Computed example of a mutant assay.
Amino acid sequence: MTAPYFAPTGGLPPQTALMTGRAIFTEAYCVIPKGCFSDIVTSYLPGWSETRMWLIARPMTGFSETFSQYVMEVAPGGGSDAPDNEPGAQSVIFVTKGTATLSLDGQDHVLDDGGYAYIPPGRAWRLWNRSGAPVHFHWVRKLYEPAEGIATPDPIVSSDRTVTPIAMPDTDGRWATTRFADPSDLRHDMHVNIVTFQPGGLIPFEETHVMEHGLYVLEGKAVYKLNRDWVEIEAGDFMWLRAYCPQACYAAGPGPFRYLLYKDVNRHAKLRGPGGFGR
């Protein structure tokens, strides 16, 4: 399967461009359109060389509480032997353009377009660009929440090209999910999947649930219901949904509409500390 994943190129709009865009930040959701991915909003990370990133989601009181998400751009020869300074963090890497070499527990894996890796907490890993062109990938991070009697998950190295999407019931295949981890595996406290809508596919009700979401549009366009608003979305846009934000979707075409989806799963609601009322 050849999948045209959108990857930002940076740069700056010309001084003659109109400023008006589609960016919005509300009490329930945020939309960061692809036009916001300019050079001026990039940042850098300790321990990484020849690398810049767009930080599109981070934990914030009253909004996202569980995850961060980076859009990474690593130039040829760049990368890191010490990518993450948080020992309790688990990570998902998803490559949208180029080729990265991931070393995980001492074994090298080559990830090209559509390549996916789940890295459990406490594992030794490195990532380098040994190719002659930049590599772009998404990096989702979440502190792992241990559960009594449940081991941490095993690593996963896979690809969008090799995992068969599973159609949602009664949709005639117009709405399907590519799942890289078994949803019944309680070792996982987060899922990062790919959701695909064929033209005419839709979410036929307003989903309202405890999971918060990060949605990066890989391909196509649609209209998305976010809380009270219908918002036009296209490849390269990012949506950030607070828990219980009502959501629905209609993909009008002409081609498939696909997005990378983060959600937190399989754990009790917090009653103490951040996000809870106890002390």
Results as ranks from 00 to 15, higher is better:
Gly106Gln: 02
Gly88Phe: 13
Ile150Tyr: 10
Gly106Ser: 02
Gln198Ala: 14
Ser68Met: 06
Thr101Leu: 02
Gly77His: 01
Gly62Tyr: 09
Thr66Trp: 07
Leu143Ile: 15
Tyr70Phe: 13
Val74Trp: 03
Val157Gln: 03
Gly201Pro: 09
His109Cys: 02
Ala151Leu: 10
Pro146Asp: 06
Leu186Cys: 06
Phe67Thr: 11
Pro87Asn: 03
Ala100Asn: 02
Phe137Lys: 00
Asp154Ala: 13
Val74Asp: 07
Ala167Leu: 06
Ala167Trp: 07
Asp182Met: 04
Thr164Cys: 01
Trp125Arg: 00
Pro204Gly: 11
Asp105Gly: 11
Gly132Pro: 00
Asp189Ala: 03
Met190Asp: 05
Val192Lys: 00
Gly200Glu: 11
Met72Leu: 14
Tyr70Thr: 08
Asp154Cys: 03
Ser91Arg: 04
Asp81Tyr: 10
Val71Ile: 15
Thr178Asn: 05
Asp182Val: 09
Ala75Gln: 15
Asp154Pro: 01
Arg126Thr: 15
Ser103Trp: 03
Ser68Trp: 02
Ser91Phe: 09
Glu86Arg: 04
Ile203Arg: 00
Val163Cys: 05
Arg123Ser: 13
Asp185Met: 03
Thr99Asp: 04
Glu65Asn: 03
Pro204Tyr: 04
His138Asp: 03
Ala89His: 08
Trp125Ala: 01
Asp112Val: 09
Thr162Ile: 15
Gly200Val: 07
Glu145Ala: 11
Arg174Asn: 08
Asp189Pro: 01
Ala147Trp: 04
Gly173Lys: 01
Asp112Asn: 08
Phe67Val: 12
Pro204Lys: 01
Leu143Trp: 04
Glu65Thr: 12
Ser103Asp: 11
Thr196Met: 06
Ala147Met: 10
Val95Pro: 04
Met60Lys: 01
His136Ile: 14
Gly79Lys: 01
Ala117Trp: 12
Gly149Asp: 08
Gly132Met: 02
Gly78Val: 13
Ile119Asp: 12
Ala167Arg: 00
Ile156Asp: 07
Arg187Ala: 14
Phe67Tyr: 14
Asp189Cys: 06
Phe197Thr: 10
Ser158His: 06
Trp128Asn: 08
Val135Thr: 12
Leu186Ala: 13
Glu65Arg: 01
Asp154Leu: 07
Ala100His: 02
Asn193Leu: 07
Gln90Trp: 08
Arg141Gly: 05
Pro165Arg: 00
Glu148Trp: 09
Leu104Met: 10
Ala117Pro: 09
Phe63Asn: 08
Gln69Phe: 13
Leu104Ala: 09
Ser91Gly: 00
Gly79Asp: 07
Tyr70Ile: 12
Val92Ser: 05
Asn129Ala: 02
Ile156Ala: 09
Asn193Pro: 03
Pro165Leu: 11
Thr152Met: 12
Phe63Leu: 13
Pro83Ser: 06
Ile93Glu: 05
Thr196Phe: 06
Leu127Ile: 15
Arg179Ser: 12
Asp172Val: 02
Gln69Cys: 15
Asp154Gly: 07
Thr178Pro: 01
